[in-house]
């Protein structure tokens, strides 16, 4: 839902100006229209978790986030996907492998100070995030939301 009302202005640009610009301006798809969604808080920010047939009504009734779920944010419904992984900063001298094992997570990468951990496919990422956050070995946690933000330049 747009936070502000946009005035759609039929730009009375000259044909040449529009053509010149459009020679290099790509036509983009209009923002996703979300039919059904659930408000979730991820990484301290509010998103709309997109409810689809695949998500299922039973799941839709629970505040949850699973790997593969799509969430939208912002005036133009920018869509991201939960990958099922977490960024974790750990306290000094933490055994990251032990941390992962203790919490039933897969260690994807660590350099000793930070780590990337992956949850099982059916894990509620919001619950996993809470568990990580409450672990004394963890300084900070972030759920990975990927939206292919980088474009070829």
């Amino acid at each position: 839902m747009l936070k502000v009302t946009l005035t759609s202005l039929a730009i009375l640009a000259s044909g040449s100006a529009l053509a010149a610009a459009n020679g290099h301006l790509k036509e983009l798809a209009v923002p996703v229209q979300i039919e059904q969604s659930q408000t979730v808080e991820v990484n301290g920010q509010t998103y709309q978790r997109i409810i689809t047939q695949a998500t299922g009504q039973e799941v839709a009734d629970t505040i949850a986030l699973f790997a593969g779920d799509q969430v939208a944010q912002g005036a133009f419904n920018q869509v991201s996907k939960a990958t099922g992984t977490f960024f974790v900063a750990v306290t000094p001298n933490t055994d990251v492998k032990a941390l992962a094992k203790d919490l039933g997570l897969t260690l994807v990468f660590t350099n000793g100070e930070t780590a990337v951990l992956r949850a099982s496919e059916d894990a509620n990422l919001l619950q996993v995030s809470d568990v990580l956050r409450n672990d004394s070995r963890v300084d900070s946690v972030k759920i990975e939301l990927s939206r292919n933000k980088n474009k070829p330049e």
Binding site: L6, S8, A10, L18, N22, L25, E27, L28, A29, V30
Partner: peptide, 13 residues
Amino acid sequence: FIAYINRDNIFQI
């Protein structure tokens, strides 16, 4: 500024 999505969706903001 102008937000340009496509020639049918141009917004002066």
